[in-house]
């Protein structure tokens, strides 16, 4: 079997003395899109932060294409093409939309493709093109999510991690983002997607992991028929 793109092995970490992850093990294979879901506060965002280098692992391994990236600087992770779009990202509020996007291509490997990628982002999110000179703090919640994803794309990702890109958005906007993320993953960018909405995840990913109490509680293929009852059961346990 081919080597996984991203491999997380018994990862343990936390904040200060508070442990949050209690041994997460998961893998993302070539051309695959995985979804993470689970109750609030059980460590999904913490997991992504550790992968992107914002947080140091206490124990365990993170490998990107077989190379260990656990505990390296975020810069080194970005340089390898792993881009993390964090939850509720406010980006740079006093900079304009286009300034934010251009900074998304700050890393050397993304710089050469900056202007073509900018055109691609504007094609994907025409609203951002209309608001290119607007300060990003004046954007609506939905536009801000688009900008956050756009900034991620400007980094020319070889692997994209999106943390709750539709948090707090109305259904119509959610559909719009679902379309956009679908387009991104269809050009072959492997995806790690965190979402509360399991239906949204099923539509976009090949495999789901449920994170519960800082560990993987379930590993299921999205193609499996999931009905609402089963999902509720996953969240709240049996009986």
């Amino acid at each position: 079997m081919a080597q996984p793109i991203l491999e997380i092995d018994d990862l343990v970490t936390g904040y200060g003395r508070t442990q949050v992850l209690w041994g997460v093990t998961l893998a993302l294979n070539e051309g695959e899109r995985i979804g993470l879901f689970g109750p609030n506060g059980h460590g999904k965002s913490t997991l992504l932060k550790t992968v992107s280098g914002l947080l140091k692992p206490w124990r365990g391994a993170i490998r990107l294409n077989g190379e260990s990236i656990g505990g390296v600087q975020p810069r080194a992770v970005v340089d390898r093409g792993l881009i993390h779009v964090p939850q509720g990202n406010v980006l740079f509020p006093q900079l304009t939309v286009v300034e934010n996007l251009r900074l998304g291509a700050y890393a050397r490997r993304a710089r050469a493709e900056r202007e073509p990628n900018l055109a691609r982002v504007f094609e994907l999110f025409p609203r951002l093109a209309e608001r290119r000179r607007q300060l990003s703090r004046t954007l609506s919640g939905g536009e801000r999510q688009m900008l956050a994803i756009g900034v991620g794309l400007m980094g020319a990702p070889k692997l994209l991690m999106l943390d709750e890109p539709t948090l707090g958005l109305a259904p119509k906007l959610k559909d719009e983002l679902l379309d956009a993320i679908g387009k991104i993953s269809r050009v072959g960018v492997p995806l790690v997607l965190v979402e509360q909405d399991v239906e949204f995840l099923v539509a976009l990913t090949d495999r789901l992991y449920m994170i519960n109490h800082g560990a993987v509680a379930l590993d299921i293929a999205s193609t499996d028929r999931l009905d609402h009852g089963e999902i509720m059961q996953m969240y709240f346990g049996k009986g």
Binding site: G53, D79, V85, P86, P93, L95, R102, L103, Y106
Partner: peptide
Amino acid sequence: TRIGSAIRAVSQNRESALLMGMN
């Protein structure tokens, strides 16, 4: 300039700056 906008950016959001690969 690239460095100049990065200096402005990092003052507004350190975490995002890190995630964009800024030193």
